[in-house]
Simulated assay, not measured.
Amino acid sequence: MVLVSTARHGAPGRIRIIGGSLRNSRLDVADMPGLRPTAERLRETLFNWLAPIISGARVLDLCAGTGALGIEALSRGAASVQFVEREARVARAIEQNLARLKQADGAVAAMDAEAFLRGAGRPHDLVLLDPPFALGLWKALAQQLEQGGWLATAALIYVESPRTVTLTLPPNWQLQRESHAGDARGALYRRT
């Protein structure tokens, strides 16, 4: 994740949910160096793509950061969201936002994504994969998702990365759509 100001999304330290039952709700964002909320434009594009399938989906938000992607999924009717965030203070902020917004279908694991994926896999319909850009974890996490039983048969995987980085992802992940916002690329893959 790359540091960006949240001021353009609202008050400093807050971003807003853009659609669904929680539309215009504000999320408190922990003050943490390197925390990069997904740009509002990319979030809106992603959830427009997901509109036909998000209702009732089981979602895994890896490297959740602010939790904005997963909370947006809950707002739009996802059945459940498992958030995974390694920074304890940031994970607590997600838990506090979920409690304040009365979102009981969200659970937070305060641990490293790679360690989480070494656990017993439970298939998810949608995975939100947005690791800190500087760590270059896309390939390792994608392999763990694919091999560990974390993906439903025709799961969708949203991958956010720098525009200039070429990713090595499992060959059975077929690109469905992609968009760009600033230096970030958002791509939606379907597992085949």
Rank of each mutant, 00 (worst) to 15 (best):
G65D: 03
T66M: 03
T66G: 03
G67V: 02
G70A: 09
G70E: 11
E72S: 03
E72I: 01
L74N: 10
L74F: 08
A78Q: 06
A79W: 01
S80L: 07
S80F: 04
V81G: 11
V81M: 06
E85V: 01
R86V: 02
R86F: 00
E87Y: 01
E87A: 11
A91T: 11
A93Y: 03
I94S: 09
L98R: 09
R100M: 11
R100E: 12
L101T: 08
K102F: 04
K102D: 13
Q103A: 11
A104N: 05
G106V: 09
G106F: 07
G106D: 05
V108F: 08
A109G: 04
M111Y: 00
M111A: 14
A113P: 13
A113G: 13
A115G: 04
L117K: 04
R118E: 12
R118Y: 07
A120T: 14
A120Q: 15
R122C: 08
R122I: 15
D125R: 01
D125E: 13
L129K: 02
L129G: 02
P131K: 03
G136C: 12
L137G: 13
W138R: 08
A142F: 02
Q143H: 12
L145Q: 07
L145M: 12
G149V: 05
W150R: 05
L151I: 05
L151E: 07
L151M: 11
A154Y: 00
A154I: 00
L156D: 00
I157Y: 02
Y158T: 03
Y158F: 15
E160F: 01
E160Q: 03
S161P: 06
P162Y: 00
